[in-house]
Design a protein around this nucleic acid. Sequence first.
DNA 1: GGGCATTTACTCGGATATGATGTGTCCGAGTCACGGGGG
DNA 2: CCCCCGTGACTCGGACACATCATATCCGAGTAAATGCCC
Lengths: 164, 164
Amino acid sequence: MKHSEGLEWAIHSCSLLAALPPGTCLPSKLLAEFFDLPEAYLAKQMQKLSQAGIVETRRGPRGGYGLARPSADITLLQMVEAIDGDAQHFRCTEIRRCGPTGVANRHYTRPCGIARSLWKAEAAWREELNKVNLADINRMGQAETPPEQIAKALKWFQEKLAGA
Amino acid sequence: MKHSEGLEWAIHSCSLLAALPPGTCLPSKLLAEFFDLPEAYLAKQMQKLSQAGIVETRRGPRGGYGLARPSADITLLQMVEAIDGDAQHFRCTEIRRCGPTGVANRHYTRPCGIARSLWKAEAAWREELNKVNLADINRMGQAETPPEQIAKALKWFQEKLAGA
DNA sequence: GGGCATTTACTCGGATATGATGTGTCCGAGTCACGGGGG
DNA sequence: CCCCCGTGACTCGGACACATCATATCCGAGTAAATGCCC
């Protein structure tokens, strides 16, 4: 019961794309270098985001990944589900119906209380994630990032994108 | 990002113990037969519950597992954490500090907004699980279980416990 | 008949295999930019 | 000088190994009951 390692990378990458001018494309090579991450595996995460329709891809020179929608239209839940899957965390196998005391299926009308309780908690979790969008995350990031780093990052991207 | 298979078994087992007279001890063999589950692996789940202090064990003949506390004092969250662990689902590795644009650690005061948002959702999930206790689950179970099964189960346990 | 030591059967607990899933990597398909040649 | 075509380099995407953790199982340690023996 834990999130995959790449989730953090994917969200930070999206946040970075949201912070740059709209329409900016960043290749996985630059993203990986910026965060000091393994390029190939980060690309796999971006691929998942692409399949989920969160980012768009451009191949060839000057290509890369860019947000497919305005950052306000991308929720945290969508990113989490893109990386970790959108399946229910709890899978009820209805063991109450099994064993020597089980009775015919038609006698069970609704999911058992255990499943309902766990699913309710999951719903609360999803709801909380759905309240936050990428624009919010970007705002928080801008506010809490040290000014020194913002200046450094801006300069770094200018050099990298111009020099290419 | 999913719960382990044994979580369902563990909770159902606890619910069953809560439904029987207080102080009842059930060995893993009976539990496994009742739910039609592999005995050895179910025992492993019960072991986790025991280590978490949710159930008590008695070895030897007439031994087994029994609730360590009144069912109203055992929350769903405690059972889930006993089986799946109580670690945070999201582990922030602070990649924002890495890479060529990172600055000295002292400039970062609080966790980044991404981690805070994910942790907040986790907190909502835990809170929801903490609202439900084993007595609630037992009540729901009593209400939704077909009367035929309740009668069958009662008879089954009487025979098994008496015949032993 | 009562009490005690011994045996016996039963139970949990941790150490031990196996399989699935997440982690990490690589190379080919596709695409755009650039450069050279022709009009 | 402008346009077009061929070339080349760059990028993503899925196929391919590896590691880790969940799944599944087994046998030994420990315990309480039952038994048989002695008083």
